[in-house]
Amino acid sequence: MQTTIELITEIFAILLKRPALKLEMSDSPDTVAGWDSLTHPELITAIEEKLNIDFDFKELASIRTIADLVSLIELKRK
């Protein structure tokens, strides 16, 4: 079964057109090329649609790193 970080990596790799992308928990927009304010809504929307979840603004504002995103997703999927 795909882990949450693997799922996020798959989505980021497709949308950022970086097939070899390997995300780490500590990664953030500062360390992942292409993850910025222009691509962010598309990345988040793709995750929401794939997992059938919705993030509110406070949740989105809490995402600094991939680890934050993983935690948030796992909390939503419980």
Partner: peptide, 10 residues
């Protein structure tokens, strides 16, 4: 920038 687009997206 990410905060603003997150707000608008929401």
């Amino acid at each position: 920038g990410i905060l603003k687009i997150s707000a608008l997206k929401t």
